[in-house]
């Protein structure tokens, strides 16, 4: 993968607006934004209601994903173009999640909903009607997902990247500042994790920085290219944004998203926690 394979812009979306094999998908945690207006032809996916298991803390299983995508009129050969609010956090998560279940043709609209809105581009309220299809997913690909025990074993052995804000990393905040501060039991970070906030990979308009800027960012932050990498945040959506930069744009191998992230780690009994600026 490289940037041109995985990122598209508004011109690309316009050029493919009539293509039945290209499906725009808006993914948000708060889907009221979609209801007020979305890019023409885009279908809606609710990060929580559609992608998360309603009972256990985990994402939905293979049959549920097959029913979701098939029901939205998305087939295995379609190109899914994801975008959303929050600088594409949840869109990047959905990209990671669909890739995990084996979808091949995936793209992210660079800058997401914010860039589209800041450029005063058209949004519509009409919901597209797509005929249901049969979707067949693969078993989840664990090469891009880290679970807690693997993270515990990675302390001091692999690159751990904490992509939350510096204030969350040092333990001053427990959640992003637009959410109430009431998440994990403890504040801080995983020992040896370097703090490379996701926002440093993005421009103010929500687009990803250039390949050279991204390489410089991760090199200056001390990421060892010879080691495998695990990224985490609070619930795994901002770290999906950084996973996308490392794995999809820069084509680094062996990069995993720890989607349990701080809401899991900061509540686990018996695991080490670091606070302050020190990794």
């Amino acid at each position: 993968m490289s940037r041109s394979d995985v990122l598209v812009d508004a011109d690309w979306v316009a050029a493919h607006s009539g293509d039945p094999d290209v499906v725009l998908v808006e993914v948000d945690e708060d889907t009221t934004a979609y209801d007020k207006g979305h890019i023409a032809g885009a279908v809606k996916i609710d990060w929580k209601k559609d992608l998360q298991d309603p009972v256990r803390r985990d994402f939905i299983d293979k049959p549920s994903l097959e029913a979701l995508l098939g029901g939205r009129g998305i087939g295995n050969d379609d190109t899914i173009v994801l975008y959303g609010g929050n600088n594409n956090w949840f869109a990047a998560y959905a990209y990671w999640f669909f890739k995990l279940y084996g979808h091949e043709n995936l793209k992210l609209l660079d800058g997401g909903r914010k860039k589209w809105e800041l450029e005063s581009r058209e949004l519509v309220t009409e919901v597209p009607q797509r005929e249901a299809k049969t979707y067949t997913a693969n078993e989840p690909d664990t090469a891009i997902r880290a679970l807690r025990d693997e993270v515990l074993g990675a302390i001091g052995e692999r690159n751990l990247v904490d992509v939350r804000s510096p204030d969350e990393y040092v333990g001053r905040l427990l959640a992003p500042a637009h959410l109430p501060q009431e998440q994990a039991q403890r504040a801080g970070h995983i020992p040896t994790a370097r703090n490379i906030p996701w926002a440093k990979a993005a421009n103010e308009d929500g687009t990803y920085k250039s390949d050279d800027e991204l390489r410089e960012l991760y090199a200056e932050a001390g990421l060892d290219e010879g080691r495998d990498t695990i990224a985490y945040c609070r619930i795994g959506e901002r770290s999906a944004h950084t996973w996308f930069a490392l794995h999809e744009i820069l084509d680094r191998p062996n990069v995993k998203n720890y989607d349990g992230s701080w809401t899991e780690w900061g509540s686990l009994v018996g695991v080490p926690v670091a606070t302050g600026d020190e990794a």
Partner: peptide
Amino acid sequence: RLLNDSGDFVAEVPTASDGGFRFYAA
């Protein structure tokens, strides 16, 4: 966008239809 006292990005929200916004800071 909310920036901390070092100028680092901390959070961002879209405005509500009345132009309102809110952050839980420290």
